[in-house]
Design a protein around this nucleic acid. Structure first.
Length: 312
DNA sequence: CTCCTGCGGT
DNA sequence: ACCGCGGGAG
């Protein structure tokens, strides 16, 4: 962060003050930010938002909480119902993890979402980001919350580089160094940093002209140097992937109220929609459908039942 | 093509 | 430390 402004107040406080004021002014009106949102509702939102964009999450989140307003309500249903309600949010293992977390919350915490970070980390599907996000946003505890947006903001503001590299433990320390002392401001600042990364300090085309902390930005101050070659692993192509084949099986089972035959599941994996038009799949790996099927069994996302296949 | 409020397994 | 894991949108 640039410190070319003589100040009685530290730059840390100025950055937090400006960013928080911007957040109050400009932040999107997201439903899980409404006052009175339960810790469970926050937890559900954080699960859904892992690798899935806000706009796609909102309708699923509303429907989910209407149906399962408490951990106990979800835990009382079969996990397959959670997978079905997950719909097309992607990475459906998260639905299974969320159901498992609800069961753990009922069994270990009397049905109340814990507020302690270590207790949260022990829940299935809750990692370093989600645990701190729940503690900060649901309970107002003071913790650094660092997601991919915040890591990019820190990379630019503090380190003067265009993009963040691999996640590091020091990310939390970087955020801690900027975090306001009082809990309420700290919680807002965590959300504000994420929001800035989401709508201003974006990966591809940052809108620095609208950035409330541009004057302290190390990246801007050094002339927006080009992206240093980072080590970030590129995501594999989706088209033709095992993920796509798995997704087709899951889509078939979500829309089937009953179990389907193994053959139907394998055909779905191969991209055969079963209505007329033959799909060209000459270049496809012939072992892929079976591999996708087996991996879904291993994940517990589908089960075989008397020679047929259904959600768990 | 890239990116998106990450996570658990290895 | 690396990898697999959906699906949508720019």
């Amino acid at each position: 962060m640039r410190s070319d402004t003589p100040a009685c107040i530290s730059d840390r406080d100025r950055v937090a003050s400006e960013l928080n004021a911007w957040f109050v002014r400009e932040a999107r009106d997201l439903p899980w930010r409404a006052p009175g949102t339960s810790a469970w509702a926050v937890l559900v939102s954080e699960f859904m938002l892992q690798q899935t964009q806000v706009e796609r999450v909102i309708p699923r989140w509303i429907a989910w909480l209407e149906r399962w307003p408490t951990p106990a309500a979800l835990a009382a249903n079969e996990p397959g119902e959670a997978v079905r309600a997950w719909d097309r949010l992607g990475y459906p293992r998260r639905a299974l993890w969320l159901h498992r977390a609800a069961t753990e919350i009922v069994g270990l915490h009397g049905g109340e979402v814990p507020r302690d970070v270590d207790a949260l980390l022990a829940l299935t599907g809750v990692g370093p980001y989600t645990a701190r996000a729940i503690a900060a946003f649901a309970y107002g505890e003071r913790h650094p919350v660092v997601d991919t947006n915040t890591r990019r903001v820190l990379a630019r503001l503090v380190h003067g580089v265009a993009l963040a590299g691999m996640p590091k433990d020091s990310d939390l320390e970087d955020m801690e160094a900027l975090l306001p002392e009082d809990r309420a401001s700290a919680a807002v600042f965590n959300a504000a940093a994420m929001e800035l990364g989401a709508i201003v300090c974006t990966a591809r085309t940052p809108r620095c002209g609208f950035c409330p902390v541009a004057q302290w930005c190390e990246w801007r101050g050094s002339g927006y140097p080009a992206n240093a070659p980072t080590k970030r692993p590129r995501q594999a192509a989706f088209e033709g992937s095992d993920r796509q084949a798995r997704g087709r099986i899951m889509a078939l089972l979500r829309r089937s109220s009953d179990a389907v035959s193994r053959e139907a599941a394998l055909a779905a994996a191969a991209g055969d929609e079963g209505h007329g038009k033959a799909r060209r799949r000459s270049a496809q790996d012939p072992t892929q459908p079976q591999r996708a099927f087996d991996s879904l069994i291993a994940d517990g996302l589908i089960v075989e039942f008397e020679g047929r296949v259904k959600l768990p």
